[in-house]
Nucleic acid binder design. Sequence first.
DNA 1: ACGACTTATCGTATACTTACGATATACAAT
DNA 2: ATTGTATATCGTAAGTATACGATAAGTCGT
Lengths: 115, 115
Amino acid sequence: MLTKAALFPTTLASLAKQAKALSHPARLAIIEHLAARETCVCGDLVDALPLAQATVSQHLKVLKAAGLVKGEVNGPRSCYCVDLDALTGLREAFDSFFREALSEAPTCAPDAGCC
Amino acid sequence: MLTKAALFPTTLASLAKQAKALSHPARLAIIEHLAARETCVCGDLVDALPLAQATVSQHLKVLKAAGLVKGEVNGPRSCYCVDLDALTGLREAFDSFFREALSEAPTCAPDAGCC
DNA sequence: ACGACTTATCGTATACTTACGATATACAAT
DNA sequence: ATTGTATATCGTAAGTATACGATAAGTCGT
């Protein structure tokens, strides 16, 4: 990553960024967990995940930075929960990406016999 | 990543893996490009992307490893194209992940006044 | 104020990712 | 066979991610 400027369309850059937030099973598990049980404190997660408390906190930070999770730090009993709007938006972003890709893709090549 | 065993449900692990494949704008751009123009050789991509040929080839390798792209190496004129089945499957995997997360998520906490 | 408990941050080690130039490989055309 | 063109791989450098123990910081109950 030596030279990096305005290289990719912002739509793709932003989708990639959020995909990155989903690119670790622990973070997917956190989202699932938070979605299931609202008002979840971090401790629940540490118990539910095979990771040290510091690591869970770090993953939460990543999710928070990506905007997928909201956290209210009520002192020692932080409350994290999923950001439903963000999650919905991301879902739609993925959906339109796939929709476009799949609709534009021809079933097979018209001329070349490759695929 | 010092100790890693069977830690997460395979569903999440696999979704995370594929999300990782989508977690770079160049790879999203590649998928879009391949989806739009079938029978795409790598050269097209190198022209379309602001990256060196070696780097594009590397990204293609990642996509291929993730199963999202099929590549037939016809000598000097490799033909890469999106794997429609895989893309469809991934779309559904994301969709069911989001569906579950969003449907299970209560709009707000029943008791705590945090979120 | 003090201790118990919970979460965040720091420091750090290891591994992975990204990128590129240089080089190898492989076919096509002459 | 030789040259040209196209793609893959190697080597390498720099950045980023993952993980954890140790420590800090903040709050509640006493």
